[in-house]
Nucleic acid binder design. Structure first.
Lengths: 343, 343
DNA sequence: ATGAAAGCGCTAACAC
DNA sequence: GTGTTAGCGCTTTCAT
């Protein structure tokens, strides 16, 4: 049987409230404290988080809802959140929502029944109602890597708009004018698309909505969409993928069509995961400061949990364009405009 | 304030035990049941898992300890375990141990304080003492993807020995005799090495211990070790990496030395993650039936938690060699033996 | 400084 | 079929 506070009290010859006090670092006589400590040692006593949470204390557990941990960037985020949380003595319960409303609702409800102290909602939480309920009930939450506008929630994101803008600008400077986008159905992608469009506009290029397609999170789907794009009457000369996994899908699709990257077609990723470094060719992509974002998110959440009522804030981190070998000048035969660059 | 069982009882005009009975699907009069259900609805009542766990019920939470969720195979495992657990209404708390004894101990202890119902220990849990304590206290545990011999623990793994054997045999059949191995310091790698050695033996080849090196989990380290191997006086003509991430490291190391894969050097991965499909060139690797393994592990754990005292068992799943472009005939200039194959 | 006792929300006898 | 009541292990007044 596991030792309880009563066992410790008995063994130490004090009352349970004294034991409780030493557990919680409240003033206790030196002698008593010593005896209690010894008793705890001998009995290998560990206080029950359950019982203490029942009396109003925290569980030191946070819920981390994310779209799909199989995505390498998301996995990295999970790791960072976990590490940071552990530094505070908190545990992390991870739930993959697949961006499904029902799953989001179900998991939040489940975790609330288990009295988690707060939530980090990452990468495109969509169930607005659930968020509003959380807000109403004063449950601490942080939005991570989520670009939807919620006025009263602390949010940590990378500047997706700039990322999209930089990527598109880079391609435009290489002479591309027909640039496709393979996006996911989430707010980050939306922002990246907005940046992409802005870059086109700033360069007086037309925006063709047909070149913007939405994929699910699998590389297979992205691959399929890529062949579809390439089969169209007026195919793109470059494809921006909204994350590295999709980019790999695009890459495989291009290969399937026996086209060369970057000679025939330029492609880019987003996130700068290992995938983009190791692929053939290595991918031009955008680096996201994951570690910083995650640490920050955990810090803010835990502050909120501890009741330090800091003001809600939006933190926007800067992305960084990483140019590798998957992008190059637009092939001339597809354009009448002569290439400006030599080589 | 959150609604409690008392609120529901009052609203429904019954006693709390009646409410409790409907919550737990115990026989209750039709009329009462109806009223209770309605009251629960109106009050948006959710039973507190904490309180019910305190009275001896389960928390429906399992702890999943793994080496590092940033590894794509591990991430995939996490996803599968999570999905399966959710099917049973269980949550999963994930902790990355980095194979550190202290972390393993700390997390297990932490999770036990939170009364998780059981543990899945994955991919090289090393703290034997912790395992023995768990065993002694009758805490349900499953070993997943772990090859250490514990007689009394249910274990689900892939046949790592065969994986290593197949990989080495494949390379030997291509004429390689100096085959290096980059391994991790865990039991799966040990088994893979054992398979590798057996294949060498079966082909009357010498085993050179210097060709077996241990890496941490980062591709950077593997890259470093690779350049080190290649700089040695008698370098290998092939490198088996014990997982795809390390293989990517090896690949980058080879590139750094300006050698061509597979012309100058063959390399292989292990796990058949997306990395091995997208790399340049795509990697010969070994497919691991992750999904099956994980589902099985969760099934077994939950059976054990529910007290269906099934016998402990070892489940060994079959790996599958996937041959891609990263392996080819041993370059002749390094061997005096003429190549048997044409081409 | 220490202890007695009430109560957190729920379950599980046990009685009616 | 339904209600009463005693815990589960802990925290927290409130006395002493």
């Amino acid at each position: 049987m596991k030792a309880t506070i009563y066992d410790v009290a008995e063994k130490a010859g004090v009352s349970i409230s004294t034991v409780s006090k030493v557990i919680n670092n409240q003033p206790v006589g030196k002698k008593s404290k010593q005896k209690v400590l010894e008793a705890m040692q001998e009995l290998n006593y560990k206080p029950s988080v359950l019982a203490s949470a029942l009396t109003g204390k925290r569980t030191s557990t946070i819920g981390f809802l994310l779209p799909d941990i199989a995505n390498p960037l998301v996995a990295e985020m999970a790791r960072r959140v976990e590490d940071r949380a552990h530094e505070y003595g908190f545990n992390v319960v991870i739930c993959s929502t697949d961006l499904k409303l029902e799953k989001e609702e179900r998991y939040v409800s489940l975790l609330r029944q288990k009295s988690v102290d707060g939530f980090i909602l990452a990468g495109g939480f969509r169930n607005r109602e659930v968020i509003l309920e959380l807000l109403r009930d004063n449950v601490p939450i942080i939005l991570l890597s989520e670009s939807q506008p919620y006025s009263s929630i602390t949010t940590v994101t990378v500047d997706n708009f700039m990322g999209g803008y930089d990527l598109a600008s880079h391609l435009i400077s290489l002479g591309h004018t027909r640039i496709a986008v393979i996006a996911e159905d989430n707010s980050s992608s939306q922002e990246r698309i907005r940046g992409y469009k802005q870059a086109l506009k700033d360069n007086d290029l037309d925006i063709t909505e047909d070149l913007i397609v939405i994929s699910d999170s699998s590389p297979e789907h992205a691959q399929h969409l890529t062949t579809f794009l390439l089969d169209s009457p007026n195919p793109p000369t470059a494809i921006i993928s909204c994350n590295d996994v999709l980019a790999i899908g695009a890459l495989l699709g291009v290969r399937e069509k026996n086209l060369k990257i970057p000679e025939d077609l330029s492609i880019t990723g987003f996130d700068n995961t290992l995938l983009s470094k190791s692929s053939d060719p290595p991918l031009t992509t955008v680096e996201v400061p994951v570690q910083n974002m995650c640490s920050r998110a955990v810090d803010l959440l835990i502050e909120e949990i501890k009741g330090k009522s800091i003001e809600k804030q939006k933190i926007l981190m800067l992305p960084k364009l990483i140019i590798r070998k998957s992008t190059s000048s637009c092939p001339v035969q597809l354009r009448n405009v002569p290439s400006i660059q030599n080589e």
